[in-house]
Design a binder for these strands. Structure first.
Lengths: 208, 208
DNA sequence: ATTCTCAAAATTATCTATAATTTTGCCGAA
DNA sequence: TTCGGCAAAATTATAGATAATTTTGAGAAT
């Protein structure tokens, strides 16, 4: 998750805070105080407020008027909700991506999948996993849909990093391979249904 | 769309601007200049900037860094995209709402539907239509999903008010009745598929 | 006439300061 | 001891001011 040097200050602060929330460095329910954040970044609180709004739109914090923002909690129910939404939207995206799918794209996806195999820590694995999903869905050419999926993937990653899920390699990789195989064989609907089931299982692992 | 008197200034400005964009009072592609808006509302530009962020998260404006925000355009492609996303998410919501569906809820929905019949102008009809969808989907109890659907309905309303669609009564009401009938008969999957098709047709009307 | 350059004007982004609200902690009364 | 209320501290929200960037337009060169 690169902290793009060029962007506006608010979005840079937002991205950094997002990383911390996702990685669990800031725990759920913690209050974020604009002055403290501003001081840390050597900025004033105006861009900090805007960063908060960005995080709010991604569902990473909740904001009560006049009472500040706090890191959004995520109950098992919410995790399930995100997983179901992801399943529905990624299925939609894949259906629209299929007509534009090329051999080259599938090869890229396979490479991302192999990178996931090689990953030693959860962060590297998550990056590869997100890349895989991104590669096979991007050809749908629906920017709003892709943005929504990306936000949901961020929420999922938060769940993943929380340590609730201990094991993550084997079943996911099998699913990824099955999806690629189905796509290569031209069995789009099979690929879609495997993807949908695959995404849903993410939310169904038992807490630690 | 009530401009809640109590909320924070930023969200009040945001709601007012949203109404204008949806109703077409501000045309697509128009630039929104923070000083002008601030002056009109007798406020400073800090809350205006936050209002812009709110609109951005709803997809009503697009913001280029250092170059301000402009009202999001909506091509036929984008309208279709929103319709497909709505179909996918509303289908998901209805599936989860069905187990919690009661006779009373269905009666409320029927009443909202009748209000739609009585509507004389597009605005009243849209309000009733949104209410109908809201009533049958709310029991799913998935707040993030409902919020996403609401944003998509807003985008749809924008399309509706743009005048591209001339006629709107008959087919929609027939669909609504079919959904209610299916729900009453316990045929959930039928209701879901009618709803999905129904929402998708919204994006398929020809431009004027 | 067209295009390029440069300066002025407009606009955005950020900072500093002020007002309003909420939280916190202490003190007294039951 | 516990509860309620009041005052001080902390924090959020907004306003006003400054810096930086982009847009605009005029004038010169081709």
């Amino acid at each position: 998750m690169t902290t793009a040097k060029s962007d506006t200050l608010a979005s840079r602060i937002g991205k950094t805070l997002a990383d911390r929330i996702i990685s669990g460095a800031i725990e759920a329910g913690a209050r974020l105080r604009q002055d403290h954040v501003a001081e840390e970044f050597g900025a004033s609180h105006v861009p900090v407020r805007e960063a908060f709004r960005l995080l709010e739109s991604q569902g990473l914090v909740v904001s009560e008027p006049r009472r500040g923002v706090r890191v959004a909690g995520f109950t098992r129910e919410e995790v399930r909700e995100v997983a179901e939404m992801r399943a529905a939207l990624e299925a939609l995206a894949l259906r629209h991506a299929v007509p534009h799918m090329t051999r080259a794209i599938l090869d890229q996806a396979e490479e991302a999948n192999r990178a996931g195999d090689r990953a030693r820590d959860v962060h590297a694995w998550e990056a590869a996993n997100r890349k895989f999903h991104g590669i096979i869905l991007a050809p749908c050419g629906m920017p709003r849909l892709l943005k929504a999926i990306d936000d949901l993937q961020t929420a999922s990653a938060r769940f993943l990093f929380s340590g609730w899920r201990a094991e993550w390699e084997a079943p996911t990789d099998r699913d990824h391979r099955a999806i690629l195989d189905a796509l290569r064989a031209g069995q789009s609907e099979l690929a879609v249904s495997v993807l949908a089931r695959h995404v849903q299982t993410i939310g169904q692992k038992r807490p630690k």
